[in-house]
Nucleic acid binder design. Structure first.
Length: 245
DNA sequence: CAGAAAATAT
DNA sequence: GATATTTTCT
């Protein structure tokens, strides 16, 4: 077991596409005397992690990022590096939290995040290390298929009435699909058109001017946002230009 | 590739 | 249930 484990200097990698949160988290984490590294792109994070194997102790990542689903990142990290990963998002939607945990997140934080919560994240690092020791010492786990029963229980948790077997079944079906199908290739993350982003959009449209045709392609180029797709712009354009339809 | 419309997700 | 965003189809 680690003799002198200390939360001080814990190497934390923070991943969030929102630069504001990145700054805030960095500041908070540093106050906790952690060593902080931040990055705004999931891919970048993955690159850093691969580049400096054993260079971080824990990862804190936002769930929905435009360039890559946070779950995918979580999966890769857990698989390739076996580091504890904490997921975070603004909403506490049950299905997503569940998904995060199922995919190996050691914790799920809700924004806004408080110091209190960050101060104790080192426990996950320690816990993981202790767990590894146990595993090595040969402790057998009964990997019973109880999760299925539990999922059923959780699924019906919000609606505890009988006679809804059909619905429950569908729910389980979805869970299964999550586990198998897209386990490696997650769905496209939704783009959140923040004021800032919309601003860039408008800017681009203006730059193109009234004389030229402001097609999604050109707008996209002018916005110069790496992870944004033409479709994203197209749909946004559709709504902003023909609000009534 | 652009635009409309249908499908989903939040 | 309304709204926001994605996917599908022409």
């Amino acid at each position: 077991m680690e003799k002198g484990f200390s939360p001080v200097g814990l190497r934390v990698l923070v991943v969030d596409d929102d630069p504001t949160w990145l700054k805030i988290l960095e500041k908070m984490l540093k106050k906790c005397s952690y060593e902080v590294t931040t990055c705004g792109l999931a891919r970048e994070a993955l690159r850093l992690l691969r580049e400096r194997k054993d260079g971080f102790d824990i990862v804190i990542s936002d769930v929905n990022m435009p360039d890559m689903d946070g779950f995918k990142l979580l999966e890769h990290v857990g698989l390739e590096l076996d580091l504890p990963v904490i997921m975070m998002s603004v909403d506490g939607e049950t299905s997503r939290v569940m998904k995060g945990v199922q995919h190996g997140a050691c914790d799920y934080l809700l924004k806004p995040i408080r110091m209190k919560e960050l101060k104790i994240i080192w426990q996950h690092v320690l816990r993981k290390k202790l767990q590894e020791v146990r595993d090595i010492e040969g402790c057998c786990y009964d990997v019973g298929a109880d999760w299925f029963t539990q999922a059923q229980f959780l699924g019906g948790g919000e609606d505890v009435s009988f006679g809804k077997k059909r619905k429950d079944f569908d729910f389980e079906k979805k869970l299964f699909q999550d586990e198998s199908d897209q386990s490696s290739s997650s769905k496209k993350a939704r783009v959140i058109w923040s004021y800032e982003l919309h601003q860039k959009f408008v800017n681009a449209v203006n730059q193109i001017g009234c004389d030229h045709k402001a097609g999604p392609k050109k707008i996209l180029d002018l916005m110069n946002i790496p992870w944004l797709t033409r479709e994203n712009v197209a749909s946004h354009l559709q709504v902003k230009l023909y609000p009534s339809l």
